[in-house]
C-alpha cells in the first residue's frame, strides 16, 4: 500500500475535476462562464485536466459589459485559442440597444447588474442547460449557501430557502424544460487556494493582476480606474498610481489595490498580510447588506 495522503489543494482539484465531469455527463448543453478573472481562468485549466486528452466539451461564454479592461479581452481571445475552445460573447451593449436592459444613471452607475439580463438571454437563446461559474463560497455570505449544482427556475431565479439537499457527491441535475443549473466546481476554494494553485500550476494571468501604472481616483475607500464612461464627482481627482486588480470585473466596479506586486509569489505575500476580503474592494457589493443575495436570486452569476 502506498502513501494515500492528498494535500488539501490536490483534494480540492480532484473535487473540481469530478464536478466538471458530472456536468459533461449530466447535461446536454453546458457552457463555462468566462469573465477573464483568475477564478474562471482556473476553471478553464481544471477543464483541460478533467477531459484530457480530449478537448473541453463545452464552449466559453463571456458576458461583455463593454466596460472591460482591454488587457482582459486580449487575454480571453488568446486563451480560447490556446485551449482550442469555442468562445461566445454576450454583449450588454446589445441588450441595452435592444431595450432589454436600461442603463443605470448617476455617479455610481454600473453595468454590473445589467449583465444578468444578457446572461439569461444568452442561456435561453443557446438553450444552455448548465452554466459553470467560478464563484466560491468564501467570497460572500450569500454564496456561502450555494450548492455545487444550483437549480434555477425558468426565469433563471435562485430560491435559497428551498434548495435541493446535496448529499455526498451525488449531484441531482434533473430539471424541467426551460430550467437550468448553475454549477460551481471551485465552491470550496478560498482566495488563497486559488492563488496557491495558480503558483503551483504555473497558470498564466492577464497583466492587470500585477502591478502597473494607471489613472485612478479614490471613492468611498476604494481606488477605481479612470475611464471615459466613469462619471466622477467634482471633488474626485485623477491620480497616477501603481496599482493592481485583486479581482477582475467590469471597470466601473473593480476596486484596485495600491501594490508593487509583480509576481504570483508577491501577490500571495500581499494577500497573506492583507486584512480586507477580496470582495471588500468590489463596489457592487457595497450597495446594501444583501446586495449579492438579491442579485443572485434574479439570476446573477
Amino acid at each position: 500500500m502506498g502513501n494515500n495522503k492528498l494535500t488539501h489543494l490536490k483534494e480540492l482539484e480532484a473535487e473540481a475535476i469530478y464536478v466538471l465531469r458530472e456536468v459533461a455527463a449530466q447535461f446536454e448543453r453546458p457552457v463555462l462562464l468566462f469573465s477573464g478573472g483568475k477564478d474562471s481562468i482556473v476553471l478553464v485549466h481544471l477543464s483541460l485536466k478533467a477531459f484530457y486528452p480530449a478537448r473541453i466539451p463545452f464552449p466559453l461564454l463571456h458576458i461583455d459589459t463593454g466596460h472591460n479592461f482591454p488587457e482582459t479581452l486580449e487575454f480571453r481571445d488568446r486563451l480560447a485559442e490556446t485551449v482550442n475552445a469555442r468562445l461566445l460573447v454576450g454583449s450588454v451593449q446589445e441588450s441595452i440597444d435592444k431595450g432589454r436592459a436600461v442603463e443605470e444613471k448617476g455617479i455610481n452607475a454600473s453595468r454590473n447588474v445589467l449583465q444578468t439580463v444578457t446572461l439569461l438571454d444568452a442561456i435561453e437563446q443557446n438553450k444552455f442547460d448548465a452554466a459553470i461559474g467560478g464563484a466560491r463560497r468564501d467570497e460572500e455570505k450569500a454564496r456561502a449557501k450555494e450548492r455545487f449544482f444550483s437549480h434555477r427556475d425558468e426565469f433563471g431565479q435562485w430560491d435559497p430557502k428551498n434548495q435541493r439537499p446535496e448529499l455526498w457527491y451525488m449531484f441531482n441535475g434533473k430539471k424541467r424544460m426551460g430550467e437550468h443549473f448553475r454549477v460551481f466546481p471551485i465552491s470550496n476554494w478560498t482566495e488563497m487556494d486559488v492563488w496557491q494553485y495558480i503558483l503551483a500550476e504555473n497558470i498564466d494571468l492577464p497583466s492587470i493582476y500585477f502591478t502597473h501604472e494607471r489613472d485612478v481616483f479614490y471613492r468611498d475607500g476604494v481606488w477605481l480606474a479612470a475611464a471615459p464612461f466613469m462619471e466622477m464627482k467634482p471633488s474626485e481627482k485623477i491620480e497616477f498610481r501603481r496599482v493592481r486588480c485583486r479581482t477582475v470585473g467590469d471597470i466601473s466596479c473593480t476596486g484596485l489595490t495600491l501594490s508593487f506586486a509583480d509576481s504570483v509569489e508577491d501577490i500571495i505575500q500581499e494577500i497573506a498580510a492583507t486584512r480586507v476580503t477580496e470582495r471588500g474592494g468590489r463596489y457592487d457589493d457595497k450597495r446594501s447588506e444583501a446586495a449579492m443575495e438579491d442579485r443572485k436570486k434574479e439570476g446573477y452569476f
Binding site: D138, A142, A144, K145, P160, K161, N188, E289
Partner: peptide, 22 residues
C-alpha cells in the same frame, strides 16, 4: 455566519452554510 436576509432578521440559520479557515 449569518448569510441570508431572513436569517439575519430572525436570528436563525436556515440553510447549510460553508465556512473556511486555515
Amino acid at each position: 455566519t449569518d448569510g441570508l436576509r431572513a436569517e439575519r432578521e430572525q436570528g436563525i440559520t436556515i440553510d447549510v452554510a460553508y465556512r473556511y479557515f486555515a
